[in-house]
Design a protein around this nucleic acid. Sequence first.
DNA 1: CGACGTGTTGATCTCTCTCAATTAGAGTGG
DNA 2: CCACTCTAATTGAGAGAGATCAACACGTCG
Lengths: 245, 245
Amino acid sequence: MKVVPCATCPLRPMPLFIAQTDAENALIETLKRDQVVVLADRTLIHEGQADAPLYTVLSGWAFRFKTLSDGRRQILNFLLPGDFIGVQQKMGDAAAHGVHTLTDTVLCVFQRDALWELHRSAPSLGFAVTWLTAHEESVVDDTLLSVGRRNAEERIATLLILLYKRAAALLPDADINGVPFPLTQQHIADGLGLSLVHTNKTLRKLERRGLHRIEDGRLHLLDVNALARIADLYGDGKPAPRPLI
Amino acid sequence: MKVVPCATCPLRPMPLFIAQTDAENALIETLKRDQVVVLADRTLIHEGQADAPLYTVLSGWAFRFKTLSDGRRQILNFLLPGDFIGVQQKMGDAAAHGVHTLTDTVLCVFQRDALWELHRSAPSLGFAVTWLTAHEESVVDDTLLSVGRRNAEERIATLLILLYKRAAALLPDADINGVPFPLTQQHIADGLGLSLVHTNKTLRKLERRGLHRIEDGRLHLLDVNALARIADLYGDGKPAPRPLI
DNA sequence: CGACGTGTTGATCTCTCTCAATTAGAGTGG
DNA sequence: CCACTCTAATTGAGAGAGATCAACACGTCG
Protein backbone atom coordinates (compact mmCIF):
# COMPACT_ATOMS: atom_id res chain seq x y z
CA MET A 1 0.00 0.00 0.00
CA LYS A 2 1.23 3.47 -0.84
CA VAL A 3 1.87 5.90 1.94
CA VAL A 4 -1.46 7.50 2.68
CA PRO A 5 -1.47 11.30 3.10
CA CYS A 6 -3.33 12.13 6.31
CA ALA A 7 -5.56 14.53 4.40
CA THR A 8 -7.03 11.63 2.48
CA CYS A 9 -6.77 9.09 5.29
CA PRO A 10 -9.34 6.38 4.71
CA LEU A 11 -10.21 6.60 8.37
CA ARG A 12 -11.14 10.23 8.09
CA PRO A 13 -14.85 9.67 7.61
CA MET A 14 -14.99 7.64 10.82
CA PRO A 15 -16.09 9.51 13.90
CA LEU A 16 -13.05 8.25 15.75
CA PHE A 17 -10.73 10.09 13.43
CA ILE A 18 -9.81 13.14 15.40
CA ALA A 19 -8.23 15.60 13.01
CA GLN A 20 -10.78 17.49 11.00
CA THR A 21 -9.23 20.71 9.78
CA ASP A 22 -6.59 21.00 7.13
CA ALA A 23 -4.18 22.54 9.58
CA GLU A 24 -4.60 19.60 11.92
CA ASN A 25 -4.04 17.13 9.14
CA ALA A 26 -0.95 19.00 8.07
CA LEU A 27 0.45 18.85 11.58
CA ILE A 28 -0.17 15.14 11.84
CA GLU A 29 1.39 14.66 8.45
CA THR A 30 4.49 16.39 9.79
CA LEU A 31 4.73 14.03 12.72
CA LYS A 32 4.08 10.91 10.71
CA ARG A 33 7.42 9.37 10.04
CA ASP A 34 6.62 6.25 8.14
CA GLN A 35 4.08 3.68 7.22
CA VAL A 36 4.80 0.01 7.70
CA VAL A 37 3.15 -3.28 6.90
CA VAL A 38 3.36 -6.07 9.46
CA LEU A 39 2.31 -9.59 8.54
CA ALA A 40 -0.28 -11.48 10.52
CA ASP A 41 0.73 -13.21 13.74
CA ARG A 42 3.84 -11.16 14.45
CA THR A 43 4.87 -9.55 17.69
CA LEU A 44 5.06 -5.86 16.88
CA ILE A 45 6.18 -4.77 20.32
CA HIS A 46 7.66 -7.09 22.89
CA GLU A 47 6.85 -6.81 26.56
CA GLY A 48 9.54 -4.79 28.22
CA GLN A 49 10.85 -3.46 24.93
CA ALA A 50 12.33 0.01 25.27
CA ASP A 51 11.99 2.82 22.76
CA ALA A 52 9.02 1.32 20.93
CA PRO A 53 7.62 3.92 18.55
CA LEU A 54 4.14 5.35 18.58
CA TYR A 55 1.79 3.75 16.09
CA THR A 56 -1.65 4.18 14.73
CA VAL A 57 -3.52 1.29 13.13
CA LEU A 58 -4.43 2.18 9.57
CA SER A 59 -5.83 -1.23 8.65
CA GLY A 60 -5.85 -4.70 10.16
CA TRP A 61 -6.34 -6.11 13.63
CA ALA A 62 -3.92 -6.56 16.52
CA PHE A 63 -4.01 -6.89 20.29
CA ARG A 64 -2.20 -5.76 23.41
CA PHE A 65 -1.18 -8.46 25.88
CA LYS A 66 0.76 -9.29 29.00
CA THR A 67 2.23 -12.60 30.04
CA LEU A 68 3.42 -14.22 33.23
CA SER A 69 6.83 -15.80 33.32
CA ASP A 70 5.41 -19.31 32.90
CA GLY A 71 3.70 -18.32 29.68
CA ARG A 72 0.15 -17.62 30.81
CA ARG A 73 -1.07 -14.83 28.56
CA GLN A 74 -3.77 -12.25 29.00
CA ILE A 75 -4.99 -10.23 26.05
CA LEU A 76 -5.79 -6.75 27.35
CA ASN A 77 -7.75 -5.45 24.40
CA PHE A 78 -8.05 -5.68 20.66
CA LEU A 79 -6.77 -2.98 18.36
CA LEU A 80 -8.70 -2.04 15.25
CA PRO A 81 -8.16 0.65 12.62
CA GLY A 82 -8.02 4.05 14.25
CA ASP A 83 -6.54 2.82 17.52
CA PHE A 84 -3.34 4.13 19.04
CA ILE A 85 -0.46 1.93 20.05
CA GLY A 86 2.04 2.99 22.64
CA VAL A 87 0.50 5.96 24.40
CA GLN A 88 0.84 4.20 27.75
CA GLN A 89 4.53 4.21 27.41
CA LYS A 90 6.34 7.16 28.85
CA MET A 91 9.07 8.29 26.55
CA GLY A 92 12.20 6.29 27.12
CA ASP A 93 10.32 3.79 29.19
CA ALA A 94 9.87 0.10 28.65
CA ALA A 95 6.59 -1.14 27.20
CA ALA A 96 4.46 -2.63 29.94
CA HIS A 97 2.65 -4.81 27.45
CA GLY A 98 3.30 -6.45 24.12
CA VAL A 99 1.46 -5.92 20.86
CA HIS A 100 0.81 -8.72 18.38
CA THR A 101 -0.93 -8.70 15.01
CA LEU A 102 -3.93 -10.84 14.13
CA THR A 103 -3.99 -9.97 10.45
CA ASP A 104 -1.66 -8.25 8.05
CA THR A 105 -1.63 -4.76 9.42
CA VAL A 106 -0.72 -1.35 8.08
CA LEU A 107 0.54 1.08 10.69
CA CYS A 108 1.39 4.74 10.68
CA VAL A 109 4.61 5.33 12.58
CA PHE A 110 5.11 8.51 14.56
CA GLN A 111 8.20 9.87 16.16
CA ARG A 112 8.39 9.18 19.86
CA ASP A 113 7.72 12.77 20.90
CA ALA A 114 4.81 13.21 18.51
CA LEU A 115 2.41 13.12 21.41
CA TRP A 116 4.06 16.07 23.01
CA GLU A 117 4.24 17.99 19.73
CA LEU A 118 0.57 17.32 19.23
CA HIS A 119 -0.29 18.74 22.62
CA ARG A 120 1.95 21.72 22.15
CA SER A 121 0.91 22.66 18.64
CA ALA A 122 -2.72 21.62 18.59
CA PRO A 123 -4.36 21.50 22.01
CA SER A 124 -7.61 20.29 20.52
CA LEU A 125 -5.83 17.24 19.16
CA GLY A 126 -4.04 16.79 22.45
CA PHE A 127 -7.38 16.85 24.17
CA ALA A 128 -8.69 14.28 21.70
CA VAL A 129 -5.77 12.03 22.52
CA THR A 130 -6.54 12.27 26.21
CA TRP A 131 -10.08 11.33 25.52
CA LEU A 132 -9.11 8.46 23.24
CA THR A 133 -6.80 7.15 25.92
CA ALA A 134 -9.53 7.39 28.50
CA HIS A 135 -11.85 5.60 26.14
CA GLU A 136 -9.43 2.76 25.65
CA GLU A 137 -9.26 2.44 29.41
CA SER A 138 -13.01 2.09 29.57
CA VAL A 139 -12.79 -0.78 27.11
CA VAL A 140 -10.35 -2.49 29.44
CA ASP A 141 -12.72 -1.71 32.31
CA ASP A 142 -15.48 -3.57 30.51
CA THR A 143 -13.24 -6.57 29.99
CA LEU A 144 -12.21 -6.53 33.63
CA LEU A 145 -15.85 -6.64 34.65
CA SER A 146 -16.35 -9.62 32.38
CA VAL A 147 -13.31 -11.54 33.47
CA GLY A 148 -13.87 -10.79 37.13
CA ARG A 149 -17.60 -11.32 37.42
CA ARG A 150 -19.15 -13.01 34.40
CA ASN A 151 -19.17 -16.76 33.79
CA ALA A 152 -17.84 -18.25 30.58
CA GLU A 153 -21.09 -18.03 28.65
CA GLU A 154 -21.65 -14.42 29.66
CA ARG A 155 -18.09 -13.45 28.87
CA ILE A 156 -18.23 -14.86 25.38
CA ALA A 157 -21.60 -13.31 24.62
CA THR A 158 -20.22 -9.96 25.78
CA LEU A 159 -17.10 -10.23 23.68
CA LEU A 160 -18.97 -11.23 20.56
CA ILE A 161 -21.35 -8.30 20.81
CA LEU A 162 -18.70 -5.70 21.58
CA LEU A 163 -16.29 -6.85 18.90
CA TYR A 164 -19.11 -7.08 16.41
CA LYS A 165 -20.06 -3.49 17.11
CA ARG A 166 -16.52 -2.24 16.74
CA ALA A 167 -15.95 -4.16 13.53
CA ALA A 168 -19.31 -3.14 12.08
CA ALA A 169 -18.59 0.51 12.76
CA LEU A 170 -15.68 0.27 10.36
CA LEU A 171 -17.73 -1.22 7.55
CA PRO A 172 -19.95 0.34 4.93
CA ASP A 173 -23.44 0.44 6.34
CA ALA A 174 -25.24 -2.06 4.15
CA ASP A 175 -22.86 -4.90 4.86
CA ILE A 176 -25.08 -7.52 6.46
CA ASN A 177 -22.78 -10.39 5.73
CA GLY A 178 -21.28 -10.50 9.20
CA VAL A 179 -18.03 -8.79 10.11
CA PRO A 180 -14.40 -9.85 9.73
CA PHE A 181 -13.33 -11.90 12.72
CA PRO A 182 -9.68 -12.90 12.65
CA LEU A 183 -9.46 -14.33 16.19
CA THR A 184 -8.78 -17.96 16.89
CA GLN A 185 -10.43 -19.58 19.89
CA GLN A 186 -7.10 -19.27 21.66
CA HIS A 187 -7.32 -15.50 21.33
CA ILE A 188 -10.84 -15.47 22.71
CA ALA A 189 -9.68 -17.63 25.59
CA ASP A 190 -6.73 -15.36 26.33
CA GLY A 191 -8.92 -12.29 26.13
CA LEU A 192 -11.46 -13.66 28.57
CA GLY A 193 -9.29 -15.48 31.07
CA LEU A 194 -10.59 -18.89 30.03
CA SER A 195 -8.94 -22.11 28.92
CA LEU A 196 -8.98 -23.00 25.26
CA VAL A 197 -11.05 -26.11 25.82
CA HIS A 198 -13.72 -24.42 27.86
CA THR A 199 -13.87 -21.58 25.37
CA ASN A 200 -14.50 -24.06 22.60
CA LYS A 201 -17.24 -25.87 24.49
CA THR A 202 -18.99 -22.66 25.44
CA LEU A 203 -18.71 -21.25 21.94
CA ARG A 204 -20.24 -24.42 20.50
CA LYS A 205 -23.06 -24.31 22.99
CA LEU A 206 -24.00 -20.78 21.95
CA GLU A 207 -23.61 -21.68 18.30
CA ARG A 208 -25.81 -24.76 18.60
CA ARG A 209 -28.47 -22.59 20.22
CA GLY A 210 -28.40 -20.45 17.10
CA LEU A 211 -27.06 -17.30 18.70
CA HIS A 212 -24.10 -16.77 16.44
CA ARG A 213 -21.95 -18.31 13.76
CA ILE A 214 -18.25 -17.96 12.99
CA GLU A 215 -17.37 -19.06 9.51
CA ASP A 216 -14.56 -18.30 7.08
CA GLY A 217 -13.15 -15.69 9.37
CA ARG A 218 -16.41 -13.79 9.69
CA LEU A 219 -18.67 -13.39 12.69
CA HIS A 220 -22.43 -13.41 12.32
CA LEU A 221 -24.73 -12.55 15.21
CA LEU A 222 -27.93 -14.48 14.62
CA ASP A 223 -29.76 -13.48 17.79
CA VAL A 224 -28.36 -10.29 19.22
CA ASN A 225 -31.15 -9.94 21.77
CA ALA A 226 -30.50 -13.34 23.26
CA LEU A 227 -26.77 -12.63 23.35
CA ALA A 228 -27.33 -9.23 24.97
CA ARG A 229 -29.59 -10.82 27.57
CA ILE A 230 -26.93 -13.39 28.42
CA ALA A 231 -24.23 -10.72 28.50
CA ASP A 232 -26.30 -8.45 30.72
CA LEU A 233 -25.60 -5.65 28.25
CA TYR A 234 -28.10 -2.92 27.75
CA GLY A 235 -27.84 -0.70 24.72
CA ASP A 236 -24.85 1.57 24.67
CA GLY A 237 -23.62 1.79 28.19
CA LYS A 238 -26.96 2.78 29.58
CA PRO A 239 -27.12 1.81 33.20
CA ALA A 240 -28.47 -1.65 33.70
CA PRO A 241 -31.98 -1.81 35.16
CA ARG A 242 -31.90 -3.06 38.72
CA PRO A 243 -34.22 -5.65 40.16
CA LEU A 244 -36.35 -3.99 42.80
CA ILE A 245 -35.29 -6.38 45.50
CA MET B 1 -10.21 21.01 56.25
CA LYS B 2 -9.72 24.47 54.88
CA VAL B 3 -9.65 24.92 51.17
CA VAL B 4 -6.11 24.24 50.11
CA PRO B 5 -4.52 26.65 47.65
CA CYS B 6 -2.96 24.66 44.84
CA ALA B 7 0.32 26.48 45.35
CA THR B 8 0.67 24.88 48.77
CA CYS B 9 -1.04 21.62 47.85
CA PRO B 10 0.19 18.91 50.19
CA LEU B 11 0.54 16.66 47.18
CA ARG B 12 2.96 18.99 45.52
CA PRO B 13 6.13 17.30 46.77
CA MET B 14 4.93 14.00 45.33
CA PRO B 15 6.25 13.12 41.91
CA LEU B 16 2.74 12.48 40.69
CA PHE B 17 1.79 16.08 41.21
CA ILE B 18 1.98 17.52 37.75
CA ALA B 19 1.97 21.29 38.11
CA GLN B 20 5.33 22.66 39.04
CA THR B 21 5.51 26.29 38.00
CA ASP B 22 3.63 29.13 39.64
CA ALA B 23 1.78 29.85 36.43
CA GLU B 24 0.58 26.29 36.25
CA ASN B 25 -0.59 26.35 39.82
CA ALA B 26 -2.41 29.59 39.21
CA LEU B 27 -4.20 28.10 36.24
CA ILE B 28 -5.28 25.06 38.19
CA GLU B 29 -6.40 27.29 41.00
CA THR B 30 -8.63 29.09 38.50
CA LEU B 31 -10.26 25.87 37.40
CA LYS B 32 -10.72 24.51 40.88
CA ARG B 33 -14.26 25.21 41.80
CA ASP B 34 -14.65 23.72 45.23
CA GLN B 35 -13.32 21.32 47.77
CA VAL B 36 -15.61 18.75 49.33
CA VAL B 37 -15.41 16.16 52.06
CA VAL B 38 -17.14 12.85 51.51
CA LEU B 39 -17.57 10.42 54.38
CA ALA B 40 -16.34 6.86 54.20
CA ASP B 41 -18.42 4.25 52.40
CA ARG B 42 -20.43 6.65 50.24
CA THR B 43 -21.11 6.39 46.55
CA LEU B 44 -19.62 9.54 45.13
CA ILE B 45 -20.62 8.87 41.53
CA HIS B 46 -23.30 6.41 40.53
CA GLU B 47 -22.97 4.20 37.48
CA GLY B 48 -24.74 5.85 34.60
CA GLN B 49 -24.88 9.19 36.36
CA ALA B 50 -24.79 12.09 33.93
CA ASP B 51 -22.91 15.33 34.44
CA ALA B 52 -20.66 14.05 37.20
CA PRO B 53 -17.96 16.61 37.90
CA LEU B 54 -14.26 16.14 37.56
CA TYR B 55 -12.48 15.42 40.83
CA THR B 56 -9.04 15.03 42.17
CA VAL B 57 -8.37 13.08 45.36
CA LEU B 58 -6.68 15.30 47.90
CA SER B 59 -6.76 12.82 50.75
CA GLY B 60 -8.44 9.52 51.48
CA TRP B 61 -9.08 6.35 49.50
CA ALA B 62 -11.83 5.44 47.06
CA PHE B 63 -12.42 3.04 44.19
CA ARG B 64 -14.00 2.86 40.76
CA PHE B 65 -16.39 -0.01 40.12
CA LYS B 66 -18.93 -1.53 37.76
CA THR B 67 -21.80 -3.84 38.58
CA LEU B 68 -24.00 -6.27 36.72
CA SER B 69 -27.74 -6.00 37.06
CA ASP B 70 -27.91 -8.84 39.56
CA GLY B 71 -25.49 -7.08 41.88
CA ARG B 72 -22.19 -8.72 41.07
CA ARG B 73 -19.60 -6.01 41.51
CA GLN B 74 -16.13 -5.56 40.08
CA ILE B 75 -13.77 -2.99 41.49
CA LEU B 76 -11.76 -1.58 38.60
CA ASN B 77 -9.04 0.18 40.56
CA PHE B 78 -8.35 1.97 43.78
CA LEU B 79 -8.03 5.74 43.95
CA LEU B 80 -5.46 7.32 46.22
CA PRO B 81 -4.43 10.93 46.79
CA GLY B 82 -3.33 12.49 43.53
CA ASP B 83 -5.63 10.40 41.34
CA PHE B 84 -8.14 11.84 38.91
CA ILE B 85 -11.80 10.94 38.93
CA GLY B 86 -13.95 11.29 35.87
CA VAL B 87 -11.53 11.75 32.98
CA GLN B 88 -13.04 8.78 31.18
CA GLN B 89 -16.32 10.54 30.94
CA LYS B 90 -16.85 12.59 27.82
CA MET B 91 -18.49 15.86 28.72
CA GLY B 92 -22.22 15.45 28.94
CA ASP B 93 -21.90 11.71 28.90
CA ALA B 94 -23.00 9.19 31.47
CA ALA B 95 -20.41 7.75 33.82
CA ALA B 96 -19.53 4.24 32.72
CA HIS B 97 -18.49 3.33 36.24
CA GLY B 98 -19.30 4.29 39.80
CA VAL B 99 -16.97 5.74 42.41
CA HIS B 100 -17.24 4.87 46.08
CA THR B 101 -15.21 6.03 49.07
CA LEU B 102 -13.31 3.74 51.40
CA THR B 103 -12.38 6.40 53.94
CA ASP B 104 -13.38 9.96 54.59
CA THR B 105 -12.12 11.68 51.51
CA VAL B 106 -11.29 15.23 50.56
CA LEU B 107 -11.76 16.03 46.90
CA CYS B 108 -10.95 18.99 44.74
CA VAL B 109 -13.83 19.71 42.41
CA PHE B 110 -13.21 21.06 38.93
CA GLN B 111 -15.62 22.44 36.42
CA ARG B 112 -16.57 19.94 33.78
CA ASP B 113 -14.59 21.63 31.01
CA ALA B 114 -11.47 22.06 33.12
CA LEU B 115 -9.76 19.33 31.17
CA TRP B 116 -10.21 21.23 27.96
CA GLU B 117 -9.10 24.50 29.53
CA LEU B 118 -6.03 22.77 30.83
CA HIS B 119 -5.12 21.48 27.40
CA ARG B 120 -5.80 24.82 25.80
CA SER B 121 -3.97 27.03 28.27
CA ALA B 122 -1.18 24.77 29.42
CA PRO B 123 -0.23 22.07 26.91
CA SER B 124 2.36 20.70 29.26
CA LEU B 125 -0.34 20.03 31.82
CA GLY B 126 -2.59 18.62 29.14
CA PHE B 127 0.19 16.27 28.18
CA ALA B 128 0.60 15.29 31.80
CA VAL B 129 -3.09 14.46 32.00
CA THR B 130 -2.81 12.24 28.95
CA TRP B 131 0.06 10.47 30.53
CA LEU B 132 -1.71 10.12 33.88
CA THR B 133 -4.71 8.66 32.11
CA ALA B 134 -2.54 6.22 30.22
CA HIS B 135 -0.89 5.29 33.49
CA GLU B 136 -4.21 4.58 35.16
CA GLU B 137 -5.03 2.32 32.24
CA SER B 138 -1.85 0.39 32.83
CA VAL B 139 -2.93 -0.18 36.43
CA VAL B 140 -6.15 -1.67 35.15
CA ASP B 141 -4.10 -3.73 32.69
CA ASP B 142 -2.20 -5.20 35.60
CA THR B 143 -5.39 -6.09 37.39
CA LEU B 144 -6.81 -7.66 34.27
CA LEU B 145 -3.73 -9.85 33.99
CA SER B 146 -4.23 -10.91 37.60
CA VAL B 147 -7.92 -11.60 37.35
CA GLY B 148 -7.61 -13.35 34.02
CA ARG B 149 -4.55 -15.47 34.60
CA ARG B 150 -3.46 -15.63 38.24
CA ASN B 151 -4.92 -17.96 40.85
CA ALA B 152 -6.32 -16.66 44.11
CA GLU B 153 -3.06 -16.79 46.03
CA GLU B 154 -1.16 -15.03 43.25
CA ARG B 155 -3.82 -12.39 42.86
CA ILE B 156 -3.81 -11.50 46.52
CA ALA B 157 -0.04 -11.39 46.72
CA THR B 158 -0.01 -9.09 43.72
CA LEU B 159 -2.63 -6.78 45.15
CA LEU B 160 -0.94 -6.53 48.51
CA ILE B 161 2.38 -5.59 46.99
CA LEU B 162 1.02 -3.06 44.53
CA LEU B 163 -1.24 -1.35 47.04
CA TYR B 164 1.53 -1.32 49.60
CA LYS B 165 3.80 0.44 47.14
CA ARG B 166 1.22 3.02 46.25
CA ALA B 167 0.34 3.72 49.84
CA ALA B 168 3.97 3.83 50.94
CA ALA B 169 4.80 6.35 48.22
CA LEU B 170 2.44 8.77 49.93
CA LEU B 171 4.02 8.40 53.33
CA PRO B 172 7.04 10.03 54.92
CA ASP B 173 9.99 7.82 54.21
CA ALA B 174 10.85 6.52 57.64
CA ASP B 175 7.41 5.09 58.33
CA ILE B 176 8.06 1.40 58.79
CA ASN B 177 4.89 0.75 60.67
CA GLY B 178 3.01 -0.60 57.68
CA VAL B 179 0.70 1.48 55.53
CA PRO B 180 -2.95 2.47 55.93
CA PHE B 181 -5.19 -0.20 54.48
CA PRO B 182 -8.87 0.68 54.58
CA LEU B 183 -10.16 -2.24 52.48
CA THR B 184 -12.41 -4.93 53.84
CA GLN B 185 -12.04 -8.45 52.56
CA GLN B 186 -15.13 -7.82 50.47
CA HIS B 187 -13.28 -5.06 48.65
CA ILE B 188 -10.32 -7.30 48.00
CA ALA B 189 -12.67 -9.96 46.68
CA ASP B 190 -14.45 -7.51 44.40
CA GLY B 191 -11.17 -6.14 43.15
CA LEU B 192 -9.81 -9.56 42.29
CA GLY B 193 -12.87 -11.35 40.97
CA LEU B 194 -13.00 -13.74 43.91
CA SER B 195 -15.70 -14.71 46.39
CA LEU B 196 -15.55 -13.29 49.88
CA VAL B 197 -15.09 -16.71 51.48
CA HIS B 198 -12.27 -17.77 49.22
CA THR B 199 -10.58 -14.43 49.68
CA ASN B 200 -10.69 -14.90 53.41
CA LYS B 201 -9.27 -18.40 53.26
CA THR B 202 -6.45 -17.39 50.95
CA LEU B 203 -5.63 -14.30 52.97
CA ARG B 204 -5.42 -16.38 56.14
CA LYS B 205 -3.20 -18.91 54.45
CA LEU B 206 -0.72 -16.21 53.44
CA GLU B 207 -0.93 -14.65 56.86
CA ARG B 208 -0.31 -17.94 58.63
CA ARG B 209 2.76 -18.43 56.47
CA GLY B 210 4.04 -15.13 57.82
CA LEU B 211 3.98 -13.22 54.56
CA HIS B 212 1.86 -10.32 55.68
CA ARG B 213 -0.35 -8.99 58.43
CA ILE B 214 -3.39 -6.75 58.35
CA GLU B 215 -4.17 -5.19 61.68
CA ASP B 216 -6.01 -2.10 62.83
CA GLY B 217 -6.49 -0.92 59.29
CA ARG B 218 -2.81 -1.14 58.45
CA LEU B 219 -1.04 -3.51 56.09
CA HIS B 220 2.37 -4.91 56.93
CA LEU B 221 4.39 -6.90 54.42
CA LEU B 222 6.50 -9.29 56.44
CA ASP B 223 8.12 -11.14 53.55
CA VAL B 224 8.03 -9.08 50.39
CA ASN B 225 10.31 -11.44 48.52
CA ALA B 226 8.07 -14.42 49.11
CA LEU B 227 5.05 -12.39 48.11
CA ALA B 228 6.76 -11.13 44.96
CA ARG B 229 7.74 -14.66 44.06
CA ILE B 230 4.17 -15.84 44.43
CA ALA B 231 2.88 -12.87 42.47
CA ASP B 232 5.40 -13.38 39.68
CA LEU B 233 6.28 -9.71 40.05
CA TYR B 234 9.73 -8.54 39.24
CA GLY B 235 10.85 -5.16 40.41
CA ASP B 236 9.16 -2.24 38.74
CA GLY B 237 7.67 -3.52 35.58
CA LYS B 238 10.90 -5.06 34.41
CA PRO B 239 10.15 -7.86 32.03
CA ALA B 240 9.81 -11.19 33.73
CA PRO B 241 12.67 -13.58 33.14
CA ARG B 242 11.59 -16.43 30.91
CA PRO B 243 12.40 -20.06 31.53
CA LEU B 244 14.71 -21.25 28.78
CA ILE B 245 12.37 -24.02 27.70
C1' DC C 1 -29.06 -6.00 74.93
C1' DG C 2 -30.09 -7.07 70.21
C1' DA C 3 -28.80 -5.71 65.45
C1' DC C 4 -25.34 -5.30 62.31
C1' DG C 5 -20.91 -5.46 59.87
C1' DT C 6 -16.71 -7.96 59.39
C1' DG C 7 -13.97 -11.88 59.80
C1' DT C 8 -13.53 -17.05 60.20
C1' DT C 9 -14.17 -21.89 59.28
C1' DG C 10 -16.22 -26.35 57.66
C1' DA C 11 -18.91 -28.89 54.21
C1' DT C 12 -20.62 -29.47 49.80
C1' DC C 13 -21.19 -28.35 44.90
C1' DT C 14 -19.97 -26.93 40.31
C1' DC C 15 -17.78 -24.48 36.90
C1' DT C 16 -13.72 -24.52 34.67
C1' DC C 17 -9.16 -26.63 34.01
C1' DT C 18 -6.15 -30.24 32.53
C1' DC C 19 -5.20 -34.34 30.05
C1' DA C 20 -6.04 -37.05 25.99
C1' DA C 21 -7.50 -38.20 21.57
C1' DT C 22 -9.69 -37.27 17.07
C1' DT C 23 -10.95 -34.61 12.90
C1' DA C 24 -10.33 -31.45 9.27
C1' DG C 25 -7.88 -28.33 6.34
C1' DA C 26 -3.60 -26.13 4.54
C1' DG C 27 0.89 -26.41 3.24
C1' DT C 28 5.24 -29.16 1.91
C1' DG C 29 8.14 -32.32 -0.15
C1' DG C 30 8.92 -36.60 -2.55
C1' DC D 1 -0.82 -37.50 -6.41
C1' DC D 2 0.06 -38.86 -1.87
C1' DA D 3 2.32 -39.25 2.71
C1' DC D 4 3.59 -36.02 6.32
C1' DT D 5 3.24 -32.15 9.26
C1' DC D 6 1.05 -28.27 11.54
C1' DT D 7 -2.51 -25.59 13.22
C1' DA D 8 -7.27 -24.91 14.71
C1' DA D 9 -11.34 -26.91 16.17
C1' DT D 10 -13.75 -30.56 18.72
C1' DT D 11 -15.15 -33.85 22.27
C1' DG D 12 -14.89 -36.90 26.43
C1' DA D 13 -13.28 -37.90 31.12
C1' DG D 14 -11.45 -36.86 35.42
C1' DA D 15 -9.51 -33.43 38.70
C1' DG D 16 -9.49 -29.27 41.22
C1' DA D 17 -9.79 -24.38 42.39
C1' DG D 18 -13.01 -21.64 43.83
C1' DA D 19 -18.19 -20.78 44.65
C1' DT D 20 -22.04 -21.40 47.58
C1' DC D 21 -24.29 -22.55 51.87
C1' DA D 22 -24.29 -22.44 56.83
C1' DA D 23 -22.62 -21.28 61.47
C1' DC D 24 -20.31 -18.87 64.62
C1' DA D 25 -17.17 -15.25 66.87
C1' DC D 26 -16.32 -10.58 67.94
C1' DG D 27 -16.70 -5.62 68.27
C1' DT D 28 -19.48 -1.48 67.64
C1' DC D 29 -23.47 1.03 68.22
C1' DG D 30 -28.15 2.75 68.97
